[in-house]
Write a protein that binds this DNA or RNA. Sequence first.
DNA 1: ATGTTATTCAACCTTTTGGTTGAGGGTATG
DNA 2: CATACCCTCAACCAAAAGGTTGAATAACAT
Lengths: 117, 117
Amino acid sequence: MTAPLDSIFAALADPTRRTILAMLLEDDMAVTDVAEPFEMSLAAISKHLSVLERAGLIAQEKRGRLKWCKLEPAALKAPSVWMQGFGQFDPVNLDDFERFLAAEIKFQSSDAEQEGS
Amino acid sequence: MTAPLDSIFAALADPTRRTILAMLLEDDMAVTDVAEPFEMSLAAISKHLSVLERAGLIAQEKRGRLKWCKLEPAALKAPSVWMQGFGQFDPVNLDDFERFLAAEIKFQSSDAEQEGS
DNA sequence: ATGTTATTCAACCTTTTGGTTGAGGGTATG
DNA sequence: CATACCCTCAACCAAAAGGTTGAATAACAT
């Protein structure tokens, strides 16, 4: 059921995909809206999304003509457990996380909007 | 100084490399001893080790004609922080980790020995 | 000096990855 | 109906990843 560590870590290794995950942290989004801030084709983003889905990191649900993407944070539990076995870190510092997001997300709260319902 | 998340996650995406990390969790090892349990060439393992080193996950130090590899667990802090930002998990359960290791390590405490000192 | 062990380098090969474009299938909407 | 929008598929491409082999380098042993 849970995807193997291989595909999860591989999915996380791409900066575009990590940025997508960060975007989805704020809200569910449709494919076109996910693609908007990036400078690559929609088809490329579509591929990235299916990599993320195969890794179990997101779920996609089609409603009408939109396909909604939502984060599946539970998928991160397995790799998180794996990693923490190697070094016991302090209780996670969320400020560190914010710094990561700031550094990685290029589009600064751009004009990507999504339609209600 | 700390390697970018790209290279860390990419390094972790390969099962051979994760197994190597698990081996080094028990003890520092020389390259040939690391390679012993695997069915691939020494050169291939050497490449894997340099991927791990570029990712900051291990350090290699040459002493005499042996090159010792040791874990650099601090390198996992960055990706760990990143991941935990997505889902707050329970304090890590070390039993889960043991299960991962058991599942991943194929060679069951095989005849890989390393020289003292 | 010669040989043996430890490790990497260089060249090569195949498969995977990340991107492109153009066509096409659904699903609204005028 | 016709048309526009949302998304994926298929074919293609270049570059990177993961492996091989054989030669090269470095250090110890005889």
